[in-house]
Design a protein around this nucleic acid. Structure first.
Length: 594
RNA sequence: GGGGGUGUAGCUCAGUUGGUUAGAGCGAUCGCCUGUCACGCGAUAGGUCGCGGGUUCGAGUCCCGUCACUCCCGCCA
């Protein structure tokens, strides 16, 4: 028999009535009546109420045990009377009458209470993460994460994928995020980099003939944190497949995601077959390449309206003349909304750093008119044109933004979410997946004006690769795609370019000569020269998937031991200083702080 | 690198126009209480008001600087 327990704290019920049992766990809560003491014992599996009476020789001692002490109790399962049953917990029909106890782990005074649903400052939660993790909600989030990962592993295996590990110490790559560097002792002055993703390795696995690979892969990027982005490290479901086209990758991922989200969430899936939206359409209709499709609002281009004679909105007209664009969001049947609703959105936009959102409502008494601050600037025919361009009807309202394309896209994409939220248009109990496809291969760097890869330099360009017109690089589309759910970008993926000559050409457009490519991507480019299969893949972010399933908005709520915003582990004291000895061994000298 | 928010007891927070000895709940300690499940009641301890400077007869409160945490922008192929 186990020395510590015969049962867990979550399993005893009426069927065990009268049984002598051993339970071990934490003291979750005490209710002391002086001559009668209730004690809730908690472990990973649940809570069991234990009871001691004054006549027990241990009564005074048990009464004094602080919360969160780990104890073992010996006692008898007793059926509770009908009026004292607790329906909230699994073990609520019984309680344990304690006959003896033993302290297994004493506790100091707690820096934060475990028994509480209150919110606590991150700093204290992260420093005492082991206490924080005992709390119900986060404890369950972490278990959910574990189960999600197990499920993914078994499903991927069912789909014919093999899991492989790839190196953690690898080489620095010139594109992309900042690398974490690790100095090499055996090669003084040289550094390893932690992988930003196993991108090159997974392609090498395909060249090695393994056909279908996946990995729950740790990825390291030295970039600043956000609520939905851990500093430093995160996990991807990295996968790659040989002899496939874009749709083959989509099929695998859709199968996996629908099964996963149905299993771990009660929320409905809005689409079983995920819609495919062209990047350019997404930017026009939603102002972003990660649209929340639960949101019914769309954006319409109305630039041409401001070239009309019967439009007197001079600020916009002037901007349009100098190359700005004008776009709008239409809200249905909002003519009776109070002024505060409209001004609230205008003020919110100003708070976002935009020049605000102009608005008016379409009304018709004798004739069509625009009601609201800028409504008077539009003639009847202009209003009709706006209605045509934006599918608006009488009673709807128009929110307008004008400026440079990327500024308008940005503010309207945010406004789209803000307005939908204010009007309560988003069903929180659904998941809306979609694919964003047809990304451009290159884009212009706004500061340097140089052509650069817009996403992954290893992506395959679309069209006939023999007739590819490299003189117009901005027109080239790639077999590059994103999967998005509820406005959260889960992943990017691509069909890869497995043809070395084509890759050299594309890199040249982005300003890398052959020699640089050979040097920086030697492993890859060399491998592709020895018979590489066409291949492609994707890498959905595990953390964000679990966030969506857990309904959390902060990635730390689904991460066991996260770092804070400054990439410090407050519990382990990382990063930390190292000894002179260690530095010497690594051939490193630290610059003195000024 | 930039912008916003927060910082008062172990924890969560209140603290008015600058004005006596800075408060509450939870937790801790002590006492009372035999059916609670956020048990109840009473008492006690617990404070460099993030830190530094300034204005003032007087600063938790106003001003300047600084630090920490957090959210956002930049960044994240």
């Amino acid at each position: 028999m186990n020395k510590y327990r015969t049962h867990t704290c979550g399993e005893l019920n009426i069927k065990n009535n009268g049984k002598e049992v051993l339970l071990s766990g934490w003291i979750n809560k005490k209710r002391d009546h002086g001559n009668l003491l209730f004690l809730d014992l908690r472990d990973n599996y649940g809570i069991t109420q234990c009871v001691v009476e004054k006549n027990n020789p241990n009564f005074i001692e048990i009464e004094k045990l602080p919360l969160e002490t780990v104890i073992k109790i010996n006692g008898k399962v007793i059926k509770r009377s009908e009026d004292t049953i607790n329906r909230e917990i699994k073990t609520g029909e019984i309680e344990i009458s304690i006959s003896s106890y033993e302290v297994l782990g004493a506790t100091k005074e707690l820096p934060l209470p475990v028994f509480s649903d209150q919110e606590y400052a991150e700093e204290i939660r992260l420093k005492y993460r082991f206490l924080d993790l005992r709390r119900k909600k986060i404890h369950q989030n972490i278990i959910l994460r574990s189960e999600v990962i197990s499920f993914i592993r078994s499903e991927m295996q069912n789909l014919g994928f093999h899991e492989f590990q790839t190196p953690i110490l690898t080489s620095s790559s010139p594109e992309g995020a900042r690398d974490f560097l690790v100095p090499s002792r055996l090669n003084p002055g040289k550094f390893y980099a932690l992988p930003q993703a196993p991108q090159q390795f997974k392609q090498l696995i395909m060249v090695s003939g393994f056909d279908r690979y996946f990995q729950i892969a740790p990825c390291f990027r030295d970039e600043d944190a956000r609520a939905d982005r851990s500093p430093g490290e995160f996990y991807q479901l990295d996968l790659e497949m040989s002899f496939v086209e874009q749709d083959d990758v989509f099929e695998v991922v859709e199968k996996l995601m629908t099964k996963l989200f149905k299993k771990f969430s009660k929320n409905k899936l809005l689409f079983e077959k995920f819609p495919k939206i062209k990047f350019s359409d997404a930017m026009l209709k939603y102002g972003t390449d990660k649209p929340d499709l639960r949101n019914p609002l769309e954006i319409y281009d109305v630039t041409d309206i401001f070239k009309r004679e019967d439009v007197k909105f001079e600020i916009f007209k002037k901007l349009v003349k100098t190359g700005s664009i004008a776009r709008c969001i239409v809200t249905k049947k909002t003519k009776d909304k109070p002024r505060s609703f409209f001004d609230g959105i205008d003020n919110w936009a100003k708070g976002q750093g935009a020049s605000g959102l102009a608005y008016f409502t379409l009304e018709k008494e004798d004739k069509l008119s625009g009601k609201g601050p800028v409504g008077k600037f539009f003639g009847v025919q202009a209003l009709e044109e706006i209605m045509k361009a934006s599918s608006a009807e009488v009673g709807d309202s128009i929110f307008l933004a004008c400026g440079k394309q990327n500024e308008v896209e940005k503010i309207l994409s945010q406004a789209r979410q803000k307005i939908a939220h204010d009007l309560n248009l988003i069903d929180e109990n659904t998941f809306a997946f979609c694919w964003i496809v047809d990304y451009p291969m290159f884009e212009k760097d706004e500061i340097t004006n140089k052509i650069k890869f817009s996403h992954n330099p290893f992506s395959m360009p679309q069209g006939d690769i023999k007739k590819l017109d490299l003189s117009k690089p901005l027109d080239i589309k790639a077999y590059q795609y994103d999967i998005v759910c509820n406005g959260v970008e889960l992943s990017s993926g691509a069909i890869r370019n497995h043809i070395p000559n084509l890759m050299y050409k594309l890199f040249e457009v982005a300003g890398y000569n052959k020699q640089t490519v050979d040097e920086k991507f030697s492993g890859m480019i060399n491998a592709l020269s020895y018979g590489a299969p066409p291949h492609g893949g994707i890498a959905p972010g595990i953390d964000r998937i679990v966030m969506l399933l857990a309904g959390e908005k902060n990635i730390r709520e689904i991460t066991l031991f996260p770092m804070n915003q400054n990439a410090q582990d407050l519990m382990m004291n990382a990063p930390s200083s190292v000894s002179e000895e260690q530095l010497k061994e690594l051939n490193l000298i630290l610059k003195k702080k000024k």
